[in-house]
Lab assay of single mutants.
Amino acid sequence: ATVHVKGVTYHFDNPEQAEKFAKRMAKELNGEVHVDGNTWHVD
Rank of each mutant, 00 (worst) to 15 (best):
L29Q: 04
N14R: 06
G37I: 03
D43M: 15
L29D: 02
K20F: 08
E19W: 05
V5S: 03
V5C: 08
D43E: 13
E19Q: 06
M25Y: 04
P15I: 11
K27Y: 11
K23E: 12
T2G: 03
E32T: 15
N38V: 05
K6E: 10
K27V: 11
H11I: 09
W40V: 04
F12Q: 00
D36A: 09
V8N: 08
H41Q: 06
G31Q: 06
H41M: 08
K6Y: 12
E32L: 13
G31L: 15
G7P: 02
L29A: 04
V33W: 14
E32Q: 14
K6S: 13
G31D: 03
N14S: 14
A22M: 02
N14G: 07
H41S: 07
E16P: 04
A1G: 10
K27P: 01
T2H: 12
V33R: 02
V35E: 05
Y10F: 09
H11N: 06
A26W: 02
D36Q: 11
V5A: 06
E28I: 13
V42K: 01
A18N: 00
E28W: 11
K23I: 13
A26V: 04
Q17D: 15
P15Q: 11
V35W: 14
V35T: 08
A22K: 01
R24L: 13
M25I: 11
E16G: 09
M25K: 07
F12T: 00
G7A: 04
H41W: 15
E28H: 09
H34K: 08
H4I: 15
A18G: 04
R24N: 11
D13P: 11
D36G: 04
G7K: 04
V8Q: 11
W40Y: 14
A18L: 01
A18P: 00
T39G: 12
K27E: 12
A1L: 06
H34R: 14
A22E: 01
H4M: 13
N30Q: 09
H41C: 13
V3R: 00
T39R: 15
A1Y: 15
V42N: 02
A22P: 00
F21N: 02
T39P: 01
G37H: 04
G7S: 05
D43R: 09
G37L: 04
H4Y: 13
E32K: 14
E32S: 15
N30V: 05
N14L: 09
N30D: 09
H4C: 09
Q17T: 11
K6C: 15
A18E: 00
V35S: 10
K23P: 01
K27S: 10
N14F: 08
R24M: 14
K23N: 12
H4Q: 11
A1I: 14
L29P: 01
G31S: 08
G7H: 05
F21E: 04
T2C: 14
K20Q: 13
V3I: 02
V35M: 12
E28T: 07
P15A: 14
D43G: 11
T2I: 12
E19S: 05
V35R: 15
G7Y: 04
E19V: 05
E19C: 07
V8P: 01
G31Y: 10
V35D: 03
D13C: 09
N38C: 06
K23C: 12
H41K: 06
A26S: 05
V3C: 03
V33P: 05
K6G: 14
A22I: 02
D36M: 12
E19I: 05
F12I: 01
G31E: 04
V5F: 06
H4S: 10
V35G: 09
D43S: 13
D36F: 12
V33Q: 03
A26E: 03
A26N: 02
H34F: 12
V8W: 08
Q17N: 11
N14W: 07
D36L: 11
H41Y: 15
F21T: 02
F21P: 00
V35I: 09
F12S: 00
N30R: 09
Y10S: 02
L29V: 06
V35F: 14
K27M: 12
N14H: 09
N38G: 06
V5P: 00
E16I: 11
Y10E: 01
H4L: 14
A22L: 02
E16L: 11
F21L: 03
H4A: 06
R24K: 14
W40R: 03
E16T: 10
K6M: 15
K23T: 11
V3A: 03
A22N: 00
D43H: 14
P15V: 11
E32A: 12
F12C: 05
V42G: 02
W40C: 04
N14V: 07
K23D: 08
P15N: 14
A26P: 00
A1K: 05
K6R: 13
T39W: 06
V5K: 01
Q17K: 10
A26I: 02
G7W: 05
H34I: 08
P15K: 11
G37D: 05
L29G: 04
E16H: 09
T39A: 15
V42S: 01
F21S: 01
A26M: 04
N30L: 07
W40D: 02
E28V: 11
K6F: 15
A22V: 03
F12G: 00
E16Q: 11
F21Y: 06
V33M: 07
G31T: 07
K27W: 10
A1C: 10
V3Y: 00
A18T: 00
R24C: 10
H34C: 13
G31A: 14
Y10K: 03
V35A: 10
D43Q: 11
N38E: 06
V8A: 08
H11M: 08
L29Y: 06
M25F: 04
A22F: 01
A18D: 00
V35Y: 13
T9S: 09
K20P: 02
N30S: 08
P15Y: 12
E19F: 05
K20A: 14
F21G: 01
H11W: 14
V8Y: 09
H34P: 01
M25D: 00
Q17F: 07
T2S: 11
H4T: 13
V33N: 02
T39H: 15
V42T: 02
E28C: 13
A22W: 01
R24G: 08
H11V: 10
D36H: 15
K27C: 08
N38A: 06
